[in-house]
Amino acid sequence: MARKHREMHRMQHVSWLRAAVLGANDGIISTSSLILGVASSKANHAAILTAGVAGLVAGAMSMAAGEYVSVSSQADIEHADLERESRELKRNVSRERSELASIYMERGLERKLAEEVASQLMRQDALAAHARDELGISKYQNARPVQAALTSALTFSFGAAMPLVAAWLSPISMLSDWVSGASLLFLATLGALAAKTGGASVLKGTVRVTFWGALAMGVTAGIGMLFGGGVAG
């Protein structure tokens, strides 16, 4: 008996990988930038840590709420499209079969073969066939609001904890150097892991994440110095 061959693809990682990378990346960048901005204003150690903790909590809640609302909207659209397609299948199944066959013909199949493929797929699961090939909704890409919200909140908190721990452990005189160096190292590692998991270029992913993180931290530190100096004066 021939053994079934299964190829390993990465599309099944897309939904959770996107939320995880976005959450951790935002956690590192926003919290480290906040810490550097407050530190540049000549605040004391306690004030810097308080700002970092507040940024972690607020950011995690914001990420969870934002992801839930965004992905819920996507889920509502998908549900509405599936409901409409289900009604169309009940009203005129032959027209829907022809529509599916036309899609396969546009992809290169001959009419007879396209009609046979459409008929067989619809006999098995008509709605699933139309969802996948007409609407572009698959089991790997459908919206999961709760999963996205929890993943974003947890990964944001994990990412934010890294520069926060660096700030807590470092002496006040070297806090900016410690937080900057640690955050850039964390971002580079995150970019490399995300790229490797997604099957993309590790170098490109690492450079992209690190560059934008460094830019955000630099801008925020500069604003902290500007306004901190003005307040001090």
Rank of each mutant, 00 (worst) to 15 (best):
M1Y: 09
R3P: 01
K4T: 12
R6S: 12
E7Q: 10
M8K: 12
M8F: 11
M11S: 12
M11F: 11
S15A: 14
W16F: 13
A20L: 09
N25R: 01
I29M: 08
T31P: 08
S33A: 13
V38I: 15
K42E: 12
N44R: 03
H45A: 13
H45K: 15
L49Q: 01
G55D: 05
V57C: 12
A58T: 12
A60Q: 05
M61E: 03
G66T: 04
E67I: 09
Y68R: 09
Y68A: 08
S70F: 05
S72Q: 10
D76A: 14
E78M: 08
E78A: 11
H79Y: 12
D81W: 04
E85W: 00
R87L: 15
E88N: 14
K90N: 08
V93N: 10
S94P: 00
R95G: 15
E96H: 05
E96P: 03
E96V: 00
S102A: 15
R107I: 01
G108Q: 04
E110A: 13
E110P: 10
E116D: 14
A118L: 06
S119H: 14
S119G: 07
L121A: 10
R123F: 08
R123N: 13
Q124V: 15
Q124I: 15
D125G: 09
A128L: 07
A128S: 11
R132F: 01
R132A: 11
D133A: 11
E134W: 02
E134D: 10
L135Q: 01
G136E: 07
I137G: 08
I137N: 09
I137A: 08
K139N: 11
K139Y: 10
Y140T: 14
R144H: 15
Q147S: 13
A148L: 10
A149H: 07
L150E: 03
T151C: 13
L154Y: 05
F158R: 00
G159P: 09
A161C: 15
A161T: 14
M162V: 15
L164V: 10
V165F: 14
V165I: 15
A166E: 05
A167E: 02
S173C: 00
S176R: 10
W178Y: 13
W178K: 01
W178R: 04
S183A: 11
A192E: 03
A194S: 11
A195D: 06
K196Y: 06
G198P: 01
G198F: 00
G199I: 02
A200Q: 11
V202F: 02
G205V: 00
G205P: 04
A216F: 02
V219D: 03
V219A: 10
M225H: 12
M225E: 12
G228W: 09
G228S: 07
G228R: 02
G228M: 05
V231A: 13
G233C: 03
